[in-house]
């Protein structure tokens, strides 16, 4: 298996860095597959459901979790499938490709496109609000919320993990080439969080 370096140099090998009570981690490599197809096409839906063992989410801006998989709504006909087991990449991809590839749909391996920065901490929303135009209370209001938005100028996908009244935990999906920039800005933003 390929030994991939993380995009953020100070966060290699699952290291967790803490700045002013906010913990940062860059998650190890994960399989990411972009799936597009018509949500009204029964054949497409049933083939996808069979491989993934669950129903593709049609509600906007949510994700569902099943085993090591997360299936994220990206658009009315577009999903991102994330498999924590980066090692099984070929396996999941070929399964999807075999059952859906010949239909009027697309399966694209986008694993190398984005990396995931995980941040945790009580004042997380306060930190994020410094850099986002997004209304976090509306857009990340449940433990299955995702939101695609701009972080300063960088396209990001935010994924909420924590339950209500638990310590906030958010994954930020960002292009690998932008990861260091996003990380540095976030760390800089932790400097005056204690007001």
């Amino acid at each position: 298996m390929l030994n991939r370096e993380n995009s953020i140099h100070t966060l290699q090998n699952n290291v967790v860095q803490e700045h002013a009570g906010i913990k940062f981690q860059e998650l190890p490599f994960m399989t990411k597959i972009n799936l597009r197809g018509n949500p009204n096409d029964k054949k497409f839906l049933s083939s996808a459901n069979e491989v993934l063992n669950t129903i593709l989410p049609t509600r906007t801006n949510i994700y569902i979790k099943i085993d090591s998989l997360k299936i994220i709504w990206l658009g009315p006909d577009e999903w991102l499938i994330v498999d924590e087991k980066g090692s099984d990449k070929q396996d999941l991809f070929s399964k999807l490709e075999n059952s859906i590839g010949s239909q009027d749909a697309s399966v694209t391996d986008v694993s190398e496109n984005r990396t995931v920065i995980r941040i945790m901490g009580k004042k997380l929303f306060m930190l994020l609000a410094k850099f986002l135009t997004l209304n976090l209370d509306n857009s990340l209001n449940s433990s299955s919320s995702v939101a695609q938005t701009l972080f300063i100028r960088v396209p990001v996908l935010l994924m909420r993990h924590h339950e209500h009244n638990r310590e906030p935990k958010i994954d930020i999906f960002t292009n690998r080439s932008h990861a260091n920039y996003v990380y540095k800005i976030l760390v800089d933003g932790t400097q005056n969080l204690d007001f």
């Binding site: 801006n61 939101a147 938005t149 701009l150």
Partner: peptide, 11 residues
């Protein structure tokens, strides 16, 4: 129509 109210800069 899908994501609700967002800032113009996203569009």
């Amino acid at each position: 129509p899908y994501c609700g109210e967002r800032d113009q800069s996203e569009f």
